[in-house]
Each structure stands twice: as structure tokens, then as C-alpha cells.
Amino acid sequence: MFEARLAQSAILKKVLEAVKDLLSEATFECSDSGIMVQAMDNAHVSLVSLNLRSDGFDKFRCDRNLSMGMNITTMTKILRCASSEDTVTLRAWDNPDNIIFIFESPSKEKLAEYEMKLINMDQEHLGIPETMYSCVVKMPSAEFARICKDLSQFGEAITIACSKEGVKFSAAGDYGNANIKLAQTAEVDKEEEAVCIDMQEPVKLTFACRYLNSFVKATPLCAQVKLSMSADVPLVCEYSIGEIGHIRYYLAPKIDD
């Protein structure tokens, strides 16, 4: 039997909103250690890696490892039926054809059950090598979302250039160009407002706005985002999910023809 309970469905609601633009379906790998999802978007340009640790759940039971193919569009619809304060329980039996989502109101007066059919999916896992990145930028996630949105007006791609001085985001298109520079913050009252740059070597990479704007749908999950970059390798855009895990988006850079 598999059963995982979160005291508040808000986290799971936000996770679904953070992946639904990129993934229409995904396999949820459930084991003693928690729930893992690794899936590419349809165009195979980006990769989503989600990890929810079992110890972050209020209750977690997984008697045997399960791979459950889920329709993300349907799952998003189901999670939207939960109030943020509702308790959410995911339940499946061994060799399941279905997964059950149970939402219970804080007063326990309302109990809703939604059953979703699982789908058979081809397993295709990619091996992500351990990488020492040339630049790691930590910055407020809302600021990153704002920059992606603003620069998307100017072109289809955003160039991120990171140096000792700071990080520069730029976009160019037919109507003009724009650039936004962020310096490392000297002192901040609140950690989540800090811009922190850890640079070994300067990096300049260009990424498709469309994907960056999908990644920033994870903004409600965490006040800070971590961007890890090295020349000619995919960007890693990471959001922590409270004390329970993280979501990482990998995006291949654009290259000159």
C-alpha cells in the first residue's frame, strides 16, 4: 500500500501549478525515501526533476516501490478542487490502476475523494551528471520572475551573463533591447531578499524565454531561486519546497548556428 499525507494541500497545489505548463504526463516514482519525478517537456528541451522526501510528509507509507503514470492536466484539475488548508492524502494499492486523492477540511466536516486513472508510460530516465558550476546565483524568486516577464517583451531569448560585478539579464529583438543588472547585495535585513553570486569563472548563456517563464510558475514555492550555470551545459533553476524537497528545472542553452 502507498499512502502519503500532507497537513496542507497548498504545497501540492503549488507543485502542480509549477509543472503543468511543461508536463502533460509524468511518472511518479514512490519509494521509502519519498516521491520523485523526472520528466522532459514534449520538445525535449527542458527537464523537470521533483523530489519530495518521505520525512517531509505528515504520514508516509510505501510498502513496495511504485511507478505511477499520472496525467498532470487531470491531477492539476483535482488539486484545484482542494482548499489550501485541506489535508491531502494520496492513496494507492499495490499494482494500482488508480490513485485516490482525499481532501479533508480542517474542521473534518468535509471529506472529498477523487479517483484518477493511472496511465502506462514508457520509462525514460536521463542520467544527470554531478557538475561543479562556474556561477551560482541565488536571488529573490519574485525578482527573477519579474525579469523574465519584462525581458520577454523584447525577444524570444534572455542572455544571462554572470561576472564578479553581478549578473546581467538581457534581451534583444526587432523593437529594441533591454538589460537588467543585479549587483550582489552587501547587507540585507532579510535573507530572502539577498542576491548572492558564487563565481568561479564568468559565464554568458542564452535561454528561451518560453521555458524560463514556465519555470517561474514555481515562484510561490520559495522566496529564493538558485540559478546554476556553466558554459555549454544546461541551466539549473532550483526552488526549495519548504522542508520537504525541491524542484529543479534544467534548460539546454541556445547556441549560435
Binding site: 522532459m40 520538445a43 525535449h44 528541451v45 527542458s46 527537464l47 525514460e124 530516465h125 536521463l126 542520467g127 544527470i128 551528471p129 531569448a157 542564452t206 528561451a208 551545459v233 544546461p234 534544467y250 534548460l251 539546454a252 542553452p253 541556445k254 547556441i255 549560435d256 548556428d257
Partner: peptide, 13 residues
Amino acid sequence: MSQRSITSFFGKK
């Protein structure tokens, strides 16, 4: 500019 596939960076397991 062209877009590379993520599979060209991360090999299939």
C-alpha cells in the same frame, strides 16, 4: 540561434 535537446547533454540511463 538554435535550441539543443536536453537529451544531448544527459544520456539515457
